[in-house]
Structures are given as C-alpha cells and as structure tokens.
C-alpha cells in the first residue's frame, strides 16, 4: 500500500472524496450539506478540504444565495481522476490476477 496517493489515502479525506464523487459531474454541494452527509465537525471538514484544495482535487467557491454567503464544493477533474486511479489501485491490490498475467 505504499504507492497510493497520500492525499486521498487517509480515512477522512477518502470519505470526503468518495462522497463528492457521487455527485453529478457538473454539480456543487454546500458546505453544511456535505458536513451533514459526512457527520464531521465544521473545523475538521475545513482542514481536510483545504488539503484537498491544495492538491487541486477540490474546487471551493464562495457565492451568495439571497443574502446568505454560501460555500460550494465540487471535485475537480483532477480530483475525480485521482479518485478513480486510487479506487483502481485498491481493486488491483485486492485482486491482482487480471489482464497483465494473462498476456
């Protein structure tokens, strides 16, 4: 398990990324709803989102809904790709038999 992407390979961030990956491609979710889906504290979620944002895996945008400021979050293209590669790597670790050995 050494070659796995260290940004995603941490329980909390893996949960964040997995949740965001279940959204539609062009969709963004508000911070409170994401927090509610994950059952994390606001502070904890902020910390992990910042790490993911630094890696370019999530896009965070601030906007206004009426008068209330809203934070919207989505997985970036790069983040989606990284998550897919991570999932693929995990699957290969669990079942290393296919394709390569058959060649």
């Amino acid at each position: 398990m050494t070659d796995l992407d260290p940004v995603i390979h941490a329980q909390a961030r893996l949960r964040v990324v997995a949740s965001l990956s279940a959204l539609g491609d062009g969709d963004r979710i508000t911070f409170p709803r994401l927090q509610d889906l994950l059952g994390m504290t606001a502070g904890n979620l902020s910390v992990h989102l910042r790490k993911l944002e630094d890696a370019g895996y999530v896009e965070i945008s601030k906007t206004h809904r009426g008068r209330t400021p809203t934070t919207l979050i989505r997985l970036s293209r790069r983040g989606r790709l990284a998550f897919e590669e991570y999932t693929e790597a995990i699957r290969t670790l669990l079942d290393p038999t296919p394709s390569k050995e058959q060649q």
Partner: peptide
C-alpha cells in the same frame, strides 16, 4: 474499498 462503496451509496 468498503469505505468508498459505503460512502458513495450513502451519499
């Protein structure tokens, strides 16, 4: 893998 699948289906 279990964590990924649980989180995705729950969301």
């Amino acid at each position: 893998l279990r964590l990924i699948e649980d989180q995705r289906s729950q969301t």
